[in-house]
Design a protein around this nucleic acid. Structure first.
Lengths: 154, 154
DNA sequence: TGAATCGAAGGTCAAAGATAGTCAAAGTAA
DNA sequence: TTACTTTGACTATCTTTGACCTTCGATTCA
């Protein structure tokens, strides 16, 4: 049932559970999972983007490699950063998902709160498509701001 | 005697008698019952809707699947009542506030969750006024549904 | 030594493949 | 008729692959 990309993701997450960053070789990994090397890039860009809280660096040529590092921030920093412009004027659904999943991963929100954020940030068919990304950005930003307000200061 | 849809329904109900949720593949199931794939959607929407006490999630593409989860709330529960149709087509801001404060009073949601609900249910200036109450109803209902879905069954 | 070359990585992008969703028309039963 | 069921064409989304491109280090050649 589960696609190869999901397995690769789990593998990397597993590695990252033991260290804040991992270094690996694209071809080697692709071979281990029996897929095209470019699929590794697909997994990295769809599941380990900066929005997800990761930074990817790489080097080509002989001895080349890819490094995946987790961005470590305190909960307050992350929320503050998002609310003060980290979201922008428009926000695609996939970026919104990444942001929420990162908030969850950093434990800035609970499972239920993440579900509420995602739910409200989802596409709404009764809104013209051209407006959606704009509305989504506004909604998410407002929600995060209100969330901070509702949280007794630390 | 609508044989096929009823059989599919029974089959799913059977699966759900052993677990609170099942994951299946649309094409596979359709093939097993010798029907068009879209008939699976028909069965889901006519017999496993939120009004019936179920929540459906799905994913497309390689490794795609459909998950059917039972809502685990008792009859008479405010949340369930709201989700299964108690909100209606349109919802004024003041009624939305009343609903959220009742949910808070019953401890169905936390302070932070209430803040998120209110935030998303608020008036949005970039939406035409005529649409707002309709959008609000949809949004709140979807959020409550997703909230239930995110809550591990008791 | 410096430039050209070569091989070994990794990067990009668009096409093909794999699922699921929607909707309206056609079929069927009450 | 009226409501429910079934189907299929078309759409949307996510994944996988492959051809072609870029970069880097090492080697070879003037």
């Amino acid at each position: 049932m589960s696609a190869v990309s999901d397995s690769i993701e789990r593998f990397i997450v597993e590695l990252l559970s033991e260290a804040n960053n991992v270094e690996l070789q694209r071809n080697e990994l692709a071979q281990a999972f029996g897929c095209a090397p470019s699929q590794i890039n697909y997994v990295l860009s769809t599941r380990f983007s900066p929005e997800h809280g990761y930074i990817i660096t790489s080097k080509r040529g002989g001895g080349g490699h890819i490094t995946i590092a987790r961005i470590v921030l305190t909960e307050g920093d992350l929320l503050r950063q998002l609310v003060t412009g980290g979201i922008g004027e428009a926000l695609s659904l996939s970026r919104a998902r990444a942001i929420v999943s990162r908030l969850r991963a950093e434990d800035a929100v609970s499972d239920r709160e993440a579900a509420l954020l995602l739910s409200a940030a989802g596409d709404n068919p009764s809104i013209p498509a051209a407006l959606r990304d704009h509305l989504r950005a506004e909604t998410l930003q407002k929600m995060l701001m209100d969330l901070i307000r509702a949280t007794p200061g630390e």
